[in-house]
Each structure stands twice: as structure tokens, then as C-alpha cells.
């Protein structure tokens, strides 16, 4: 997978759903507060960080902690390229 693959929100939500196994509606789930995303927790954050790195997106964890929603995380993914 190349770095460009996750710049689209759909592709990003797909890995959250398929690879993390979280039940996130497309696209409404992107704006849910992370605390409201079923199954979202710190360990799934770690798994997401790994998935992002495997896809060539290295986003610092301390920046991800500022995110309130999956859309915020996706914005950081785009910001860090």
C-alpha cells in the first residue's frame, strides 16, 4: 500500500473497519467522538498507528492524542503525508 492510499477518507475508514475490526458507519462514523466509537481504546490506537506506519504514514502518537474523531485522525494522516 502506498502513502497516497489513505489520503481519501473512505480508504481510511475502510482500514478502521476491516483491519481494526471496529464497526464504523461510512461516512457518518468519521465525525463521532472517539469515545463513542464502539471498541475504540488505547490498544486500538496502537494497532492503528502500526497500520498507518505499514501504509507509509508516520503520525506522532502525541498528535493523534489531540484528535477528537476519526476525521481528525484522518486530517493528521494527510498533514503528515
Amino acid at each position: 500500500m502506498s502513502a497516497a492510499d489513505l489520503t481519501g477518507l473512505d480508504a481510511f475508514l475502510r482500514i478502521v473497519g476491516d483491519d481494526l475490526g471496529l464497526d464504523v458507519e461510512h461516512p457518518a462514523g468519521a465525525d463521532l467522538a472517539l469515545t463513542e466509537v464502539p471498541g475504540w481504546d488505547s490498544l486500538n490506537l496502537l494497532r492503528l498507528v502500526v497500520l498507518l506506519e505499514e501504509s507509509g504514514h508516520r503520525v506522532p502518537v502525541h498528535r493523534l492524542l489531540e484528535a477528537q474523531s476519526l476525521r481528525d485522525i484522518h486530517t493528521l494522516v494527510k498533514e503528515y503525508g
Binding site: 496502537l46 498507528v49 502500526v50
Partner: peptide
């Protein structure tokens, strides 16, 4: 683990 050192440090 193929994991994030920063995450381990923080959490």
C-alpha cells in the same frame, strides 16, 4: 512487535 515506541512510552 512492529509497534510504536512512542505509544509504549505514553501508555
Amino acid at each position: 512487535l512492529g509497534a510504536s515506541k512512542e505509544w509504549i512510552d505514553l501508555f
